[in-house]
Nucleic acid binder design. Sequence first.
DNA 1: GGTTTCATCCGATTTCAATTCGGTGGCGCG
DNA 2: CGCGCCACCGAATTGAAATCGGATGAAACC
Lengths: 170, 170
Amino acid sequence: MKPENRLLDRIDHEILAALQNNARQSNKELAASIGLAPSSCLERVKRLVHDGIIRGFHADVDPKALGITLEALVFVRIVRHQRELMEALWAHLAAQPEVRDLYDVAGSHDLVVHVAVRDVEHLRRLVAEQIAGRAELGQLETSLIFQHRRSNQLPDYGHEHAAPARGRHG
Amino acid sequence: MKPENRLLDRIDHEILAALQNNARQSNKELAASIGLAPSSCLERVKRLVHDGIIRGFHADVDPKALGITLEALVFVRIVRHQRELMEALWAHLAAQPEVRDLYDVAGSHDLVVHVAVRDVEHLRRLVAEQIAGRAELGQLETSLIFQHRRSNQLPDYGHEHAAPARGRHG
DNA sequence: GGTTTCATCCGATTTCAATTCGGTGGCGCG
DNA sequence: CGCGCCACCGAATTGAAATCGGATGAAACC
């Protein structure tokens, strides 16, 4: 079933919150923390994954450990808005290993690119060779990131119209 | 040991790559995929977590399933750069559940805030009540996000100066 | 050059968790 | 009011995680 069609109940929301916080807790722990039998809990988790509500499980690695000493936001403005050029640029940037986040936005910039690089020279080369020098681009602005905080918990606006609990003990 | 002091070898890098891609594979699978005995593999993973190289494991949840229909980047410019005001603002924004990413950057903006909201009205209220109207702020610019792609794989610049394998079978 | 030291790995064993499956009760529907 | 369905449970089974002693080289040290 498609995510937009699925209706999640309170228990599903609790599972999602718990797994966003710690994806590696055992199913037994998870079940206990939300007051469900392990078998039932496992069923729900598998369903959430199967239905695409949970898109994956990822380790959060310290960038410093990978030799990343510098991150930056690159603000890109497009000169000629042609769909194919835009899509090609998007695909090109998404394929760069240095690109962590890629935003297509409305407003005074068109693209915002969050990159993680080895050092300043690496950043210079990346911007010069992979971003600038593309015909479709206008102004470029590169901003070094001093500090970055990422939340691992998505806000949850689904409680109001949540599905009622079903089955036994409802 | 601190991450900056730790020296990771080829196997560590393989483990990190594999767990960034799928944090929930069994240790047995992981070990097999990199050609290591399960016991040895588990030791390494536990060490990576203990040393802070791996900072956590998180489920990636579809925002639509949580009632999020809209995301935006809010660009913030600070008028008076005082450290305490800046830190208070940072903490305030970081505490908002709607804030997914918070960037402190150099350049023509000072803060870039990635927010996830229920709808346009929610965005308006969030910006008006939690961001604007703070004395320390200057210009504000809010850009709707049309599309957002996030890589779950951090680039790895650690191979060149990797630690040599130690112990048996080196 | 021989020896010591040490970190890593392995594999058998034990412990515990994941998975399966038949049974049960509430809820909606006819 | 009775029927069928759905989610849940809990016991049994399968399989993985965690532990530990021992073996192996590599590097360091005399």
